[in-house]
Nucleic acid binder design. Sequence first.
DNA 1: GATTTTCATATGTCTTACATTTAATGTTTG
DNA 2: CAAACATTAAATGTAAGACATATGAAAATC
Lengths: 243, 243
Amino acid sequence: MKIDPSNPADLSAQIAGAIRDAIIAGTLIVDERLPSEAELAEQFDVSRPTVREALKRLAAQSLIRTQRGATGGAFVNRLSFEAAQPQQITTSTLLLSMNAVSFSTACEARYALERACAPLAAARRSADHLATMRAEIHRQGQPGLTDEAFCASDVAFHRALVDGAGNPVLSYQLAGAVEAMQPLMNMITFTARDRARIIDLHTRIADAVEAQDDAATAQGLTALERETQALAERVFEARKPRS
Amino acid sequence: MKIDPSNPADLSAQIAGAIRDAIIAGTLIVDERLPSEAELAEQFDVSRPTVREALKRLAAQSLIRTQRGATGGAFVNRLSFEAAQPQQITTSTLLLSMNAVSFSTACEARYALERACAPLAAARRSADHLATMRAEIHRQGQPGLTDEAFCASDVAFHRALVDGAGNPVLSYQLAGAVEAMQPLMNMITFTARDRARIIDLHTRIADAVEAQDDAATAQGLTALERETQALAERVFEARKPRS
DNA sequence: GATTTTCATATGTCTTACATTTAATGTTTG
DNA sequence: CAAACATTAAATGTAAGACATATGAAAATC
């Protein structure tokens, strides 16, 4: 692991990159302890603050954790799906909000990905996932629910569907797509009639999953996508004249 | 934006979190300049190194960039799909390698997601994407190609397929799933017969996409998934006795 | 008026120091 | 002898000050 002092890039970035590469290459194993900050500083021939900046960069990506005290130090993290998911969601959310991605594009991606889960979810759905879906449908029908709470419940419903596929890799990838839609959905106001339609489609999807009918599940999702797209179009169209 | 000195968490982590929240909430706009390190240090009542550690955390996530010089400082980044993709790929790769995700699970997720792109890719594929797919198929047939280069070409082929869907959100999400499979695929040795079968299926898929036949595209992907799963099973089975 | 020089400002880095946490070690005491 | 307590050492966390360096803008010069 070497760095180039003549490189215009920050030393801390170079050091972080070198350690990251070592982790990816398997030179550094999970739970292995890195040399102490002082030792790293000597190895790379830089000062301790510079090493610390590099370690913070890695900590921000959950690649390492640090522990104080006598047997403390920096340890290579076992990157878990649970730890990676929040970051994935944050990044996805910012990507949508900063790049003027249209509602339509994001919605298309989300439902395309969910349809990918339909066959697996239909085949493997557990009683647990079904119960969650039913519970969220029930919550969505309660009067006095704010639009925001309705959206949150919608997300929970879809995550239960995705988790029903029983594939952690799928769940991880889709968490970003599903959750990142929430801020966009929150811009929409749902009339009672809108909610009724959505709840109806949710019920149809849950029934299809319970019956292990993958085709019907996919059709339900497609219908829900159409409904959502049309609803968004109506809402955004109605707001346009104001601007 | 406030931090709690009595919080057991690192001050730099708290500061990074506060700034990150401000970016997500829209309090800090894209390309807006943050206060200088010295000013931030005063605002949060911490030292400059602590502020710097916080900024490095944010830089590691591409949320900010820094510039030296008179009009320099830390600026809120417009998070682009191009910048987010490498991180997404790194994370996905590490997730697979560190969590003992089976080849079968990762493969299932990858092909499920790709099938989600099939209808869109069939409908929108451009001459450009088709040309890339054909070129990669041709490359895969060349003699003397190493297994690693064959895998890299395979990834390029599938990325062209995904990009053909013309949805940046989909491309971003799938980049992780497709690229993260490469290290796993690299563990496989491809016989000439294996390669011929895969190239044949690739051709079938490219033909289907060109003909804008979404059903045939999905079927081709399913056949390719079966082929890949069977191949991996054979290879891993053959290696087992050794251990 | 165009070019060069100077200068102010901000980040990048180093040095030193002290605070705090934590486990291991040593010591005292019942 | 054992358990509770105090000590110590090692590591990270934080602070303060200094210097190096890059860079845009203003001032001086031709």
